[in-house]
């Protein structure tokens, strides 16, 4: 089953959708599950690790009885457990910067600076020639009275 505690990535746009339950709601649910001893029924998420669920499943006594029809919501479910958020933490990286192209975005002028300098350098290479050509534009076109 789709895990409502984890964010989902849209395969077409690549954008992330928030989990159906906010972290605050997840924490509330975990608290309630611990109060009534049903931690094994919740999917794993940032507020509830897989180990905790396994431990709870081993110790819990709540299980669906096949003869009781209204216990269908207690049946075991295989939740998707892709560790989307923990990937970076496991690699020992600083979570804030993982997946970013550069550490800080910077100002626009800082980001385009190198390209601007490159173009400037190219323009300055032939600048003397360009100025000379610009200034002599009408000289070249003025009809000479001495021309044959």
């Amino acid at each position: 089953a789709r895990n409502p505690f984890l964010p989902v990535q849209n395969p077409y746009s690549g954008k992330w959708a928030k989990p159906r339950y906010s972290l605050r709601m997840q924490k509330e649910l975990v608290k309630k599950a611990k109060a009534c001893g049903m931690v094994g029924l919740l999917p794993p998420g940032p507020k509830l690790s897989l180990e905790e669920i396994e431990a709870a499943k081993r110790s819990e006594t709540v299980a669906p009885r096949p003869d009781k029809k209204q216990d269908w919501w207690l049946r075991p479910v295989e939740w998707s457990t892709e560790p989307l958020v923990d990937k970076a933490k496991k690699a020992g990286l600083v979570t804030m910067y993982v997946g970013r192209k550069r550490m800080f975005k910077g100002h626009k002028w800082e980001r385009v600076r190198s390209e601007r300098l490159r173009r400037h350098r190219i323009a300055m290479k032939g600048m003397a020639k360009q100025v000379k050509s610009y200034k002599s534009f009408y000289h070249r076109r003025r009809p000479s009275p001495l021309a044959t």
Binding site: R20, K32, C36, V77
Partner: peptide, 18 residues
């Protein structure tokens, strides 16, 4: 209370089971 907690858990399961 435990009854309220169980009710909330049941609601969660019913809303999210396939």
């Amino acid at each position: 209370s435990v009854a309220a907690a169980t009710k909330a858990l049941k609601k969660f399961r019913i809303d999210n089971l396939p």
